Amino acid sequence: MSTPVEGRKRRGNRIPQLAPLSFTVITMVLFVLFFVMPGGLGIYYAFTDYRGVGDADWIGLENFVELFQDKDFYSALIRTLTYTVIVVPLGYAVSLLSAWLLTSPRTKGAGAARVIFFLPWLVSPIVAGVIWRWLFGESFGLVNYLLSLIGVAPVSWQSDANLSLSVVVVAGIWGGMAFSMLLFSAALKNIPQSYYEAASIDGASTAQQFWKITLPLLRPTSFMVILLSTIGAMKEFALIQALNGGGPGTQNYLMVQYIYSTGFERAQIGYASAASVILMLLLLVIAGIQMRFDKGAEYE
């Protein structure tokens, strides 16, 4: 028989073991409630004619058939891919360059600059969109006002589709740069300085050190940055909605804006859910391709 003291000791030893399990269970419950169940419901609605009220009647693949015949869907898809192809590489380059400069021992005022560069990540995308809208408004924007001071005619930042998209691209890079820069900064600090010292002794230039040492050692971080940036760009909504609403008209509608407009403005929940399923599958394919390339590069 165990004594009361031994029994208390056993119960005391169980508490540290149960704590991680309890946190895991809570996380799983929240994940199921806020991700798995809504996702499953969205997939179900994709095969129905649900309009937000009433019954959801099963219609099979009709939403998908109609979706693939919708020119607005293809326009939104092409704009989304265009936005992603532009934003991800430029955002990667700007973030890596900023992190490299801020971690360089020759950079003066790196601490203050790091705080300034990190501020965009703290700003809500809605607020950031409003700020950029004030900057690039056609009749009230700061940029056009400054251009008028030097005799330049106002630029159609909002009514020209390509210029409107370019503003969104710059705003997207500005907003997403801070987090990627933070990841690169941490990775750069973990590279042993002895590698660069040895390369300098061998006569390697700064550019050669960057291409032969820095970039290869940043491969895991680069993969993570590119993957997260791609997913974020494909799902961009709040920034564009606040900046120009996908305008002019619907010419700059990205996929999430198309889904929002279809589901909430036209009350076609089933049809919008079908578009969401397509976007989810597209993201899974892109993530799978990136992971495949990353694994292939590890064995080179």
Rank of each mutant, 00 (worst) to 15 (best):
I86H: 06
F73D: 01
V123E: 00
P125C: 07
T107A: 15
V88G: 03
P89F: 02
F117R: 01
D72H: 11
G109C: 05
A113N: 03
T82W: 10
Y83L: 11
W132K: 02
I131C: 05
F117E: 03
K71W: 12
R106N: 12
K71Q: 15
A76R: 00
W134F: 12
V123N: 00
R133Y: 08
P125I: 07
I131D: 07
Y74V: 13
V94E: 15
D70C: 11
A113Q: 10
R79L: 09
D70Q: 08
F136K: 06
A99Y: 01
R106A: 14
G129P: 06
A113T: 08
R133S: 14
R114I: 03
G91Q: 12
K71H: 15
L119Q: 07
Y74E: 13
S124L: 00
V123C: 00
A110W: 11
F118V: 07
V87F: 07
W121F: 13
W100Y: 10
Y92P: 06
I131H: 05
A110K: 12
L81K: 14
T80G: 10
V115K: 05
G111F: 11
D72R: 08
Y83C: 10
L90K: 01
V115F: 05
Y92T: 08
R79I: 13
L102R: 01
P89H: 03
S104Q: 06
L135E: 09
A93M: 04
A76N: 01
P125R: 04
L122A: 10
Y74K: 14
T107F: 15
P89K: 05
I131A: 07
S98Y: 04
P105C: 02
T103C: 10
G91T: 15
V127I: 15
W134Y: 09
W132G: 00
P120N: 01
I116A: 04
R133M: 10
R106Q: 13
K108D: 11
F117S: 01
I126R: 08
F118P: 03
R114Q: 14
W132Y: 02
F117T: 02
P105E: 05
A93E: 03
V87C: 10
D70K: 05
L96S: 02
L101T: 04
F73V: 07
I116H: 01
S104D: 13
I78W: 06
L119C: 09
I126E: 10
F118L: 09
K71L: 15
F136L: 07
W100V: 12
R114T: 09
V127A: 12
G91M: 13
F136Q: 03
D70M: 08
R106Y: 08
F73Q: 02
P105H: 04
R114A: 09
V85L: 07
Y74F: 13
G109Q: 04
R79C: 09
L77A: 12
T80Y: 11
D70H: 09
S95T: 02
D72S: 12
W132T: 00
F118N: 04
R114N: 06
S75Y: 14
V130R: 00
P120A: 02
A128H: 01
S124I: 00
S98W: 05
P105T: 02
R106M: 11
W100Q: 15
G91R: 14
I86F: 06
V87S: 05
A76E: 00
S95F: 00
V130H: 03
V130L: 08
L90A: 04
S95A: 07
V123K: 00
L97C: 15
T82M: 14
V115A: 10
T82K: 10
